[in-house]
Write a protein that binds this DNA or RNA. Sequence first.
DNA 1: ATCTTATATCGAATTTGTTCGATATGTCAA
DNA 2: TTGACATATCGAACAAATTCGATATAAGAT
Lengths: 107, 107
Amino acid sequence: MDNLNVLDVFKALSNETRLNILKWLREPEKNFPAQQAHLPKEVSIKGGVCVGDIQEKVNLSQSTVSHYLSLMQKAGLLEAVRYGQWTYYRRNEETLAKVAKFINEEI
Amino acid sequence: MDNLNVLDVFKALSNETRLNILKWLREPEKNFPAQQAHLPKEVSIKGGVCVGDIQEKVNLSQSTVSHYLSLMQKAGLLEAVRYGQWTYYRRNEETLAKVAKFINEEI
DNA sequence: ATCTTATATCGAATTTGTTCGATATGTCAA
DNA sequence: TTGACATATCGAACAAATTCGATATAAGAT
C-alpha cells in the first residue's frame, strides 16, 4: 500500500531471525507443519502462517516475535490477515520485487 | 573475494548516508567534481573516489566517513585501492549483483 | 459473565550502532 | 629528518535496536 521505504526494509532485513522468517514463508507448508490448523476447511489464507506457529520455530519470546512481525509488516515485507483470534502473516512479494529492482537500478 | 555475508550487507545498507555514497559512486564524475585530481594523468582508478572527496560531500567527520567506508568494504559493497597517501573507494558490482540475486532467489 | 487462548503493547535492561575529537600510521616533499 | 597532509584507529558519549516478562486487548468457548 504505502510506498517503498528502503531504509526500513534494510533494517528489517538486518537480522538473522527476521531473514529466516522471510525465507521460511516461501514454503509455509514445508516449514510450518501445523500450518493453518485453526482455519475451517473452507477458509484459506494463501501463504499465511500464524504468529504462534512462527514463534514455535524461532527460539524467541512471544513478544519479540510479535514485534518482529510488526516491524516487517511496517516495512512492507509482510502482510497480516486476521482471522478470529489469529493473525496470519505472509510475504508481500510486491515489495520484495521492488527491493531487488531498487538494488539493481538505484543503489 | 570473501563470500557474501548478507547480514553485513543489509546492515551496511541500513543507513541513509551509506546508501547515498553507494548511489553517488554510480556516477563518480558527476557527483564528485574534483574526482581523481591527485592522480597523475597516466594512472586511473576506474570508478574510484578518495575519502576526502567523499567526506566533503557527506556532512560528517573524517573519522565517521572512514569508518563507514571500511564497513562497506568489509561487507563487500566497496573495494579500496590505495595510491600514495590516498585511498580510492569504488563500487563492487559483483556483490551488488549477488545481493539482488539473493533477494530474488533466496529470501 | 467468566475463563482460556492468541496476539499486541508497555517498560526496562542490555547490546549494538552512530558519531565525535584526539591520536596513530603512512606517504610525500623540502 | 622534519613537516604537512590523507587516512585509519581509539575511546567515549549518546541514540537506537534487541529482547524480555508483565500486562492489555480481543475473540472464542463454557
